[in-house]
């Protein structure tokens, strides 16, 4: 399943990180929320809620990529790992901080709108 939009409602997020578990399992077949392509941050002790950062497919990353490793496919920006030379210019360019790296990888990864986070979110904090 690929979804068309990805929206969030911080007020509904409970900080469970299930979205990240689902994302990492979908894309890497691994149990590791650090390989999820979205970010959950707690804003505590005040104002006392969570904040969700997800990709909205704005394309700033593709525009910044010098090797055309990030390309548009059916409205979704995807990564061609063969072309990615890990310069991290996309990381700097992303307005939401949702181009991800991981110590075990030498390419970046990002949201491909698979929709698994929406499916697994127990509260509807991430929705289509």
């Amino acid at each position: 399943m690929t979804i068309k939009t990805l929206q969030t409602n911080d007020a509904l997020c409970t900080g469970c990180h299930i979205c990240q578990l689902a994302c990492a399992m979908c894309h890497f077949r691994e149990t590791n929320p650090k390989k999820g392509a979205l970010r959950i941050a707690g804003k505590f002790p005040s104002p006392g809620h969570f904040h969700i950062d997800v990709c909205n497919q704005c394309g700033d990353c593709a525009a910044a990529c010098p090797t055309e490793a990030i390309y548009k496919d059916n409205g979704v920006y995807k990564v061609d790992e063969e072309k990615c030379d890990y310069c991290l210019l996309c990381v700097d360019a992303c307005p939401y901080g949702v181009i991800f790296t991981h110590p075990s990888m030498n390419v970046i990864f990002k949201c491909d709108y698979c929709g698994l986070c929406v499916h697994y979110c127990p509260t509807g904090a991430i929705f289509e």
Binding site: T14, G15, C16, H17, I18, F44, G48, T123
Partner: peptide, 19 residues
């Protein structure tokens, strides 16, 4: 209560965060 807050991987957020 202002926020429902849970532990890791829990769909049943029993934690209640209050202001």
């Amino acid at each position: 209560v202002i926020t429902d807050k849970c532990c890791f991987a829990c769909p049943t957020a029993c934690g209640k965060y209050s202001h």
